[in-house]
Simulated scan of single mutants.
Amino acid sequence: MTVLLPRVGWIGLGDQGAPMARAVAEAGYPLHVWARRRSSLDVLAGVPYQLHDTVADLGADSDIVGLCLGDDPDVREVATTGGLLESLEPGAVLVNHGTGLPAFAAELAELAMPYRVEVVDAPVSGGHVGAVEKRLTVLAGGDPEVVAFVRPVFATFATTVAHLGGHGAGQIGKLLNNTLLMANQQNIAELLDVAGRLGLDLPALLDAIRAGTGSSVALQSLGRAITPDNAEHLSRLQLIDMDIYRKVVAPFVSGLDPLTERAVAGAQALPRLARLTFPPPTAAG
């Protein structure tokens, strides 16, 4: 007996969203796409998909819709003004893969309630490289049964799916993850300052630490996913994440707590780290 897979709508074909959408199509899910710019569709060359002229047309043909947009206002515009929620059938699931405020995740669920549409906040960690290699981590918030329903779709581009709680829990998890990453960047910056004063060969030291117990994703990314060409852009995005994080943790801490301060410094240090870091040597074939 043939099993019909859910129809998956996708909005957001950027650096991370495009390889995620490709993975969904490659896994055999019927992929439905809407894009503001037709040039964005080039990234889907070679995989089957159906293009829709409007957001509402996409919603009407989708059981699950994944949003991989820049920020909460973009998500709100597509979901409401764009007509997505209104076009979805009762029981459909709207998944927000963007990073944003936990409070907005709860608000989006409330906006969807009159339409009987389910909502999951499911930001991802792993960057462009993780998306291309289909090894992202999904941090999900929402109803357990709904998360279980969309989990097979997540598995097309992720190796880890963590359901952390109700609406907004996925966003909190992502913000905590990003904060730790940036704090580790500051650890690296301080370590390189000390190592430089001690006269060590920095590229050789970094190669050794990458292979040793002091390694981290922050260090592994330097010189690989993070380069002098993209570090300024990534630093700005990280500082935006820290602004969101501060809004979330403000009621629970007084002033600028040490973790937040270290993470902000790490985000600011990223361009300098990229300039100091060299790609590790590749193994001989």
Rank of each mutant, 00 (worst) to 15 (best):
R22M: 06
G70Y: 12
L84S: 05
E89H: 13
V138R: 10
V132Q: 11
T277W: 03
L5A: 01
R135F: 03
T179S: 06
A265Y: 01
L51A: 14
A208N: 03
L200P: 09
V120D: 01
L180H: 10
V55G: 04
T2Q: 02
L205F: 07
N177H: 11
G285H: 09
A284I: 03
H52F: 05
P258S: 07
L176N: 04
A109C: 00
A265M: 04
G170Q: 08
A35I: 09
V3Q: 15
R116Y: 00
L273P: 00
V3G: 11
S87T: 13
G98P: 07
H52A: 13
R272L: 10
N178R: 07
H52P: 12
P279Y: 07
D71S: 13
A155T: 10
F104H: 10
E145H: 12
G70A: 14
K174Y: 02
D61V: 06
F104S: 06
T54P: 13
G17V: 08
E118R: 08
G173R: 13
L191T: 09
G142Y: 08
A131I: 06
Q238S: 10
A23F: 01
T137A: 08
S125Q: 13
P48N: 11
A189Q: 07
L164M: 12
H233A: 10
Q186M: 10
